[in-house]
Design a protein around this nucleic acid. Structure first.
Length: 1128
RNA sequence: AGUCUCUUAGCUCAGUUGGUUAGAGCGCUACACUGAUAAUGUAGAGGUCCGCAGUUCAAAUCUGCGAGGGACUACCA
């Protein structure tokens, strides 16, 4: 017996997924999808490593669906797509997790717990959730090679990173410098921006603020002003005033010179500040006054505006140092000047900004640009340091402030002085006539999340990568990358590159990749290590020179890449910090204490995942696995992973790291708020996959919104996809399977030539080819949403709602004829192709569909849809004319049905004729679909009415698209004139193909193209108009039509009865009907039709029917009783 | 604060180079069909296209200024 198509008792998507999953595993389908493709045609994909330290969320399903789609698609297109999984294992979250678990803090490291044990704990903790991640990967159908992932903490990985760092070092792209970073003196550690963004870090505090007066040295714009002139600058951190080395003004801001009196010393003063802030600063007791009479004790202090300038005029003017405790150790002559600053605003303060380059990031930046030094002094060892030390105390050079903490919060509890440094300085300035105003001010200021004490912005030593130097090349290379969406590449990423800063590599942490640089104490000698082999050699030298007792890498064998060999070392801090190397002149070299930014880890993955260049050198050098053809991550990675990949590739390889990149948006909850555990609106990916199945979940996520838009994730949306798309497709398959099994169709017959198939078959085949063409282009173009929607539309609208619905009869009626075979072949083909087109997105369901079909037909010699070849479209099978006329058929049908509805004539009641006016349509087009329309709307005849026939009432409208460009300004009058046309005018225009209009004395010739003419009404007919098409329906029901209607009703009732009685489709019956007035004629005249429809041999009229009879209504208020019996 | 992004029906989204009646699905209401039946179809109601100003004969669409949501980066005297 021939194989049967599998029939199902219901659609259970989660069950489908687990069955197919089991099938994949049992038959190694994933491996085969790679191994079956040739090495010559590869598609390179990079997996952005997730941190196994956190749990996966629903957004990971989103991101990974996108990755999976294009990898699977390329596989179908014949590419070999290797996908190595990876784990991001370093970083602060891991450290914090471990500290929480062990109940320790950073201070305990090296004391309560050794760095070695600490790192060991991190190493174990970080892989804690790998099982859960693997489960998600498997359950959602994400194909990635989890067997052999790259792991960023492995020695081989680190060795590759070191290699890259050394390249940068050798190219002089790495340097050590200082930068202003958030720093917690109480904790003695720098803080990352991540730490500063912890909730509760920014708090409103009340600080003493000072508007200080900086006495100008007269030159430039103020050269000729009599008397002393001061710049006014406001600060919320008076303790930074001793470190002031510049004042910044906005070049375009207007400033004024004001004459007034100091409120504390009552001495006359002349000050400069921004004009927009004049009233704010001179509020309260100050008053604009003609006379400048003032003595101590007066309630009001008068002031006058003497002069105004723009900021640019002030730039370059020098001033006397406000608090001359110390001078910058270098370039002191360049200090104490007015410099330009773009960031200066006139929102608050004075419009002149006090610049202390050692304690502000912006300050450092503008000072550097202007060539102004920061207040760095030399410590007893001769090293430059700021005026405040790492504990937050002033250094010796700070005069009477020396030894004091800059904030009272830093003193041990109970030891705070009564007056904080801020207050002390304020008082000093007041008495010295240098303070214009001192007041408390409330503002938000960051606090250390661990010590609860305010953060300082402090210059810290860091290693940098000279990204600024490579900016132009990075921009150039970026222009060759295909970004989805484009705006992220040009906008967010492009701007980021344009304004790129040097990359701060340093992190003062424990669990990460150590900077492989060893330096002598005086900084004169330095080695950067680029491999374990080199480290071993240098260690040997160090042992020889006597700076180290033994070589910890003694047993390491260079060139041996076995696990065993690499397991004898650990390239983490605990191990490498034990190593002292030796410089050329014999000085001992110590490793720089810092670790590198974990973003470097992940940006190095293209090379480090292959242990480049120690192993697999050719993969990179010969561009076999580099650069990536495709990567995808969330848009939040733009300045993260996308950037680090790009930067490293540009700097080390002068190449892009990826050619195509999809940056997807966020997954929000259904109200558009961010998902978070705290709000309890986070969606559990496992529950979702369990309940709805991966296919529907994936399909929903991709079809609902473009990947780069945020997705408002709503579970009801998945239900809809389930019902609407998968349900419909499932039903279509079930329908096919039901009849194909009855007829034994297994696609063994020769293909019925397209020309021998009916119009509707050629139509759906044409549609199918168009679909293949479109979907192929969408997948290739990284437009998954468009692909999904196109498929959805095809399945729902064209295949199910139109093709199957209209063709149902062909499947169950009659012999196993050519026409029937054509129908099966057509529907089969559609289902098969749909399964292939959709397989990248709905891998489980589509594989089942494909296999269910293929197992009977054996058309494909592969076990799985994922091993098949993507369908090709045949341009010759696309018939746009046909597609267009089918649309016409659909429109006409819809209009007629709408008319039936309006006139309350049910579809089962046959009607005699419809008429279509030949206005703007090709009769041949409509003629070809005549039968289709007629059967769809149950009407007997269709004919065309020539446009010259006078029964139409026509409507005319201006065609703006055609008239607009030609007449522009006169458009409105023309349109108005056209709308006033009467039937005669329209006829004239149609006849002469032209019509002359007179608009404001100008003659305008209208052609037929300039207007749209449609039918408005046909008297005596029911008329429907839609989008320029009209159709008229004859609603007359003659007696013979009425009889037919009754016959049809009867057939319908009998069929229902057959079904109720569970008769087989092919059972013949005996039909008894109770003789009732009004139906005899109708049934008699349609007897043959009735009998053939219900498979009755004859109709037996009876006077009354017994208990087995069924009363039925065949027309309004027209009832009879019938009974049927099976004939054997 | 800067950069990017989004805002169209109750909800989720389409809407080509500007062209005059702004579309679909879901939901809702009404109905039909009953040999795909826990399926299917049809029709109807439903809109200040976020606001304002501008360009244009013509703006959901282009420009500017705002508002709101979101992300990232930075953090301010």
């Amino acid at each position: 017996m021939a194989k049967k198509y599998k029939e199902y008792s219901g659609l259970n998507l989660p069950a489908v997924a687990s069955e197919v999953q089991a099938f994949w595993e049992a038959n190694n389908i994933f491996e085969k999808s790679i191994s079956s493709r040739s090495d010559d045609k590869t598609f390179v994909f990079y997996e952005g490593p997730p941190s196994a330290n956190g749990l996966p969320g629903i957004h990971h399903v989103m991101g990974r669906t996108i990755k999976d789609i294009f990898c699977r698609y390329k596989t179908l297109k014949g590419y070999k797509v290797n996908r190595k999984a990876g784990w991001d294992t370093h970083g602060l979250p891991v450290e914090l997790g471990v500290e929480k678990e062990l109940g320790i803090t950073k201070e305990d490291i090296g004391k309560k717990i050794s760095i070695e044990d600490y790192n060991k704990a991190c190493r174990e903790a970080v892989m804690k959730y790998t099982d859960i991640w693997n489960k998600l990967t498997q359950q959602m159908g994400y194909w990635v090679d989890m067997e052999d992932p790259y792991i960023t903490y492995e020695n081989k990985y680190i060795e590759s990173v070191w290699y890259l760092l050394k390249q940068l070092y050798n190219k002089d792209l790495m340097y050590k410098g200082y930068t202003i970073q958030p720093y917690s003196p109480a904790a003695g550690t720098g803080l990352s921006s991540h730490e500063l963004n912890q909730p509760g870090c920014y708090r409103d505090v009340k600080d003493t603020t000072v508007v200080a007066q900086f006495k100008a040295k007269k030159s430039g714009a103020i050269k000729d002003v009599e008397g002393d002139v001061c710049f006014m600058a406001w600060t919320t951190t008076p303790w930074t005033l001793p470190s002031n080395t510049a004042l910044a003004v906005g070049p375009k801001i207007e400033y004024v010179l004001v004459k007034t009196f100091n409120q504390y010393t009552h001495l006359p003063i002349q000050v400069i500040l921004a004009k927009p802030l004049l009233e704010k600063q001179f509020a309260g007791k100050y008053e604009l006054s003609e006379s400048l009479e003032y003595k101590e004790g007066d309630k009001k202090i008068p002031y006058q505006v003497l002069k105004s300038f723009v900021g640019a005029d002030l730039v370059g003017i020098q001033y006397e140092q406000l608090l001359p405790y110390a001078l910058p150790f270098e370039n002191a002559d360049k200090a104490f000047r007015v410099i330009p600053g773009d960031f200066v605003t006139t929102e608050d303060g004075t419009g002149i900004v006090h610049i202390a380059p050692t304690f502000g990031a912006d300050d450092a930046k503008v000072a550097k640009e202007a060539g102004v030094p920061g207040m760095m002094v030399l410590n007893p060892e001769g090293n430059p340091v700021p005026l405040v030390d790492l504990q937050g105390k002033f250094v010796a050079q700070a005069g009477e402030l020396a030894g004091k903490f800059v904030k009272n919060e830093y003193y041990p509890a109970g030891q705070e002085p009564e007056k904080s440094v801020d207050v002390e300085i304020s008082i000093k300035l007041k008495t010295e006539n240098k303070a214009f105003k001192v007041e408390k001010y409330e503002h938000s200021y960051p606090h250390c999340w661990r010590t609860d004490k305010p953060v300082l912005y402090y210059p810290l030593d860091s290693w940098f990568i000279r990204a600024t130097q490579m900016k132009d090349r990075m921009v150039e290379l970026n222009n060759t990358i295909n970004w989805k969406p484009k705006s992220t590449g040009t906008g967010r990423f492009g701007n980021w590159l344009e304004n790129v800063n040097d990359w701060n590599l340093s992190r003062s942490r424990y669990w990460g990749i150590p900077i492989p640089v060893w330096t002598s104490e005086d900084g004169s000698e330095q080695i950067c290590i680029g491999s374990v082999e080199q480290l071993k050699d240098e260690c040997a030298k160090a042992v020889k020179a006597g700076v180290m007792k033994s070589n910890p890498l003694e047993t390491f064998i260079p060139g041996n890449f076995t696990k065993e060999n690499y397991n004898i070392l650990d390239l983490h801090k605990n191990f490498v910090d034990q190593i002292t190397l030796v410089g050329a002149s014999g000085k001992p070299l110590k490793r720089e204490a810092d670790l590198i930014d974990v973003w470097f880890d992940s940006g190095a993955m293209p090379y480090a995942q292959w242990h480049y260049p120690f192993e697999n050198k050719e993969l990179i050098d010969n561009n076999k696995a580099y650069p990536a053809d495709f990567i995808a991550e969330g848009v939040d990675q733009t300045r993260g992973w996308f950037y680090t990949l790009h930067a490293i590739a540009t700097m080390c390889f002068d190449s892009v790291a990826f050619k195509n990149v999809v940056s997807n948006g966020l997954v929000l909850d259904k109200n558009g708020s961010k998902m978070s555990k705290r709000l309890g609106n986070a969606i559990d990916p496992f529950q979702t996959l369990d309940k709805y199945g991966p296919d529907a979940t994936r399909w929903y996520m991709i079809s609902n919104a473009q990947p780069w838009d945020n997705l408002k994730f709503d579970l009801d949306g998945i239900t809809e996809v389930q019902r609407k798309f998968f349900g419909t497709l499932y039903n279509t398959y079930q329908f096919f399977a039901l009849y194909a099994n009855l007829d034994g169709f297994s696609y063994k017959e020769v293909e019925v030539p397209l020309n021998d198939r009916p119009e509707i078959d050629r139509w759906i085949i044409s549609k199918l080819n168009s679909l293949v063409k479109a979907v192929d282009a969408h997948w290739a173009d990284y437009e998954p949403t468009k692909a999904a929607r196109a498929i959805q539309d095809f399945v729902g609208e064209h295949l199910s709602n139109w093709y199957v619905r209209l063709c149902r009869r062909r499947f169950w009626k009659g012999e196993y004829s050519t026409d029937k075979i054509a129908a099966y072949q057509t529907l089969y083909k559609c289902l098969e192709v749909v399964s292939q087109l959709s397989a990248p997105l709905a891998p489980f369901f589509m594989d089942q569909l494909f296999k269910d079909l293929n197992e009977v037909s054996g058309r494909h010699k592969v076990e799985s849809v994922h091993l098949s070849d993507f369908p090709t479209f045949n341009e010759k099978e696309i018939d746009l004319d046909l597609e267009q006329r089918m649309e016409l058929a659909q429109s006409f049908s819809s209009m007629v049905l709408s008319l039936r509805k309006k006139y309350k004539i049910k579809v089962r009641q046959p009607l005699q004729k419809i008429m279509i006016p030949l206005l703007g349509i090709d009769p041949a087009q409509v003629y070809a679909i005549k039968d289709l329309i007629l059967s769809e709307v149950n009407v007997k005849e269709l004919y065309f009415e020539d446009e010259s026939a006078s029964i139409f009432i026509k409507k005319i409208k201006a065609n703006f698209k055609s008239l607009g460009p030609k007449y522009q300004k006169s458009m409105k009058q023309i349109a108005a004139a056209i709308s006033k046309f009467n039937q005669q005018d329209i006829a004239t225009l149609e006849q002469d193909k032209a019509y002359s209009l007179d608009i404001e004395g100008e003659k305008i010739i209208l052609t037929l193209e300039d207007v749209e003419i449609s039918t408005d009404d046909i008297p005596g007919w029911a008329v429907a108009t839609e989008g320029g098409l009209s159709v008229a329906l004859d609603t007359t029901i003659s007696s013979s039509l009425k009889e037919e209607g009754i016959a049809r009703e009867l057939v319908n009732r009998v069929q229902n009865l057959r079904k109720d009685k569970n008769f087989d489709l092919t059972d013949r019956i005996q039909l008894k009907i109770q003789k009732v007035e009004g139906i005899v004629e109708a049934i008699h005249n349609n007897k043959t039709y009735i009998c053939s429809e219900v498979l009755a041999n004859d109709i037996e009229w009876v006077a009354a029917i017994g208990a087995d009879g069924q009363e039925v209504e065949v027309d309004d208020d027209l009832k009879t009783t019938i009974s049927i019996t099976k004939l054997n």
